[in-house]
Write a protein that binds this DNA or RNA. Structure first.
Lengths: 238, 238
DNA sequence: TAGTGGTCTAGACCACTAA
DNA sequence: TAGTGGTCTAGACCACTAA
């Protein structure tokens, strides 16, 4: 009935194993560029199953602490990086989360040939006719984000039948067009005359721009440049 | 010697299972907010082990497609988010990756009480004396990033003995001070007089600012405001 | 071609939490 | 307190790739 009196090590979780290996990296027992022992040997040393080491290593790999390759093994990443996860919600949800009323205005819509910056964002070799939409997202009737979007007609032919003056292209695409590759770019610009007028800010104001392009199976879906209003911040957790 | 002739389904990988569930979400067979079957039932339906479903679900959860809770099960996230991973390298490595020569200048260093914006970034209830460092990172002798950093003396007493005019605090902290919580903020500012002078840009230029704070076990380590030069972009892959 | 990481399985047990 | 996801294990086999 009673437990065997022999002391038993508490079962170690993959987080314990990860922390142990991480602390060896931080204490320089494993130095940047060093090769680590094989998973199997670490498992034996730390007294757990190989799959537990595998789980821990997967996490350290995702966090940018180590780099793993078959045959050649695991090594400490020579150049540590800070890795963060960024969540970008649908604009409507973002506005509502701030307790404001969401509004949307389509400013322009038409079929046009892609100008060079758009073609290059998509990596197109030649210009292509796409759907071009300019729209404004509002929070409590004030301008919030100005969006300039191009949508591939080849990849998304259905979008020509959607009434984008009611539902934002942002929302329609998120719900209907899955992507398998995305590219994000963030930078700052001084508001030009048009941005200043649309967003109701002074010309020259510093604005954060978020550019996003998506592809499915190497075919372009959409590329959008979102110009935010002054004071806008992008935040990450974790 | 020969294989049994009975056809066998090819073994399905966790990626296959993930894609199958994802496609059911996209096709609205499972709608936003819907509860999914238990992992065990999905495993039986798709003919794989429960742990394979678990692996697939872990990925869908990380990608923001579903939300999982014990007892109440798995549901399709009602508000889809775009989730991206951002890698921020050490500034030296970033400069070198552009093929430029890295340089570093410490502009100022001293012990000061934290001003309100810094105390609030750390969530401190009262101001505290910390190490305050201003420094400039250079690429081929041109200003690249201007950094304004505060380091907690309580959490990092060793840093007072480091010669930060040679090695950047950025680099020393990354190599010696692990953190378990990080907070990132991105926004745009118009260059004020001091920034313009330090970075050699016109006053009013739009600059991307990256603010980062780190903690270990709820104790503050460092908070840094990095002001980048015009044209600087933050990029993500995947 | 041989070595290392990646994945799958069945089963056991744990941990959290809605009811 | 009962139901569901989370983790661990041992073992088998696969997939990639440095040498």
């Amino acid at each position: 009935m009673t437990q065997v009196s022999e002391t038993r090590a508490a079962r170690r979780s993959w987080q314990d194993i990860r922390d142990e290996i991480h602390s060896r990296v931080l204490s320089r027992r494993y130095k940047p560029g060093d090769k680590l022992p094989r998973d199997e040997d670490i498992a034996e040393e730390l007294g757990c199953a190989r799959s537990t080491v595998q789980r821990a290593m997967q996490d350290l790999n995702d966090a940018g602490i180590v780099e793993r390759k078959r045959k050649s093994g695991t090594q400490v990443r020579p150049d540590p990086v800070t890795r963060a996860t960024l969540d970008i919600p649908i604009t409507r949800v973002e506005v509502e989360a701030r307790g404001a009323r969401y509004g949307y205005q389509m400013l322009a819509r038409g079929h046009e040939m892609t100008p060079p910056p758009v073609a290059s964002a998509f990596g197109l070799s030649a210009p292509e006719e796409m759907l071009h939409i300019e729209a404004l997202h509002l929070a409590d009737d004030a301008p919030f984000i100005l969006e300039d979007r191009w949508v591939s007609l080849g990849t998304c032919p259905e979008i020509v039948d959607v009434d984008l003056s009611v539902q934002s292209a942002n929302e329609w695409l998120v719900m209907h067009k899955p992507y398998d590759l995305m590219d994000l770019r963030f930078y700052a610009v001084n508001a030009n005359g048009e941005m200043a007028a649309r967003l109701n800010v002074s010309e020259g104001a510093a604005l954060l721009v978020i550019e996003r392009s998506t592809w499915i199976g190497k075919r372009p879906i959409t590329t959008v440049r979102s110009v935010t209003t002054p004071g806008y911040q992008l935040l990450t957790g974790s």
